[in-house]
Design a protein around this nucleic acid. Structure first.
Length: 113
DNA sequence: GATATGACGTCAT
DNA sequence: CATGACGCCATAT
């Protein structure tokens, strides 16, 4: 059978947004981790793009690998303040991932969706 | 369809 | 630890 074409539905956006919203207050996650959790490993950039396009998301909880804040200037400062307001600890310029990195639940067993 | 861009990630220097 | 190069992938023009 000729194969089902991989659909490019807006499903990607939905899943990424869902993953972002899944990060609880006081926790953080990285772009790459969000992308993986959403089922799109390697699409970290799309996560960032999405944060810019969609509003109402806990954008401050998404940081770069190792807990580094990737935003520049004022935005980066605000992100830091917002996270600290949520109780997130910093170590130098980075988030203390050891304590605050959110672990996504594994929904591997079967495709239960 | 080609080129440029971006809140990325990882590795080499 | 800072910097640069390369890989990655959806959008924008």
């Amino acid at each position: 059978m000729p194969a089902a074409q991989p659909r490019r539905k807006p499903e990607m956006r939905q899943r990424i947004i869902a993953a972002i919203r899944a990060v609880p207050r006081g926790k953080v996650s990285s772009y790459g981790a969000i992308a993986r959790a959403a089922g799109f490993p390697g699409s970290a950039r799309q996560v960032a793009w999405m944060l810019h396009r969609s509003f109402g998301l806990p954008w401050q909880r998404i940081v770069g690998s190792g807990g580094e804040i990737k935003l520049r200037g004022h935005s980066g400062l605000e992100q830091r303040l917002r996270l600290q307001a949520e109780g997130v600890c910093f170590r130098g310029r980075r988030v203390d991932m050891k304590k605050h990195e959110f672990r996504f639940p594994r929904r591997n067993l079967k495709k239960a969706v």
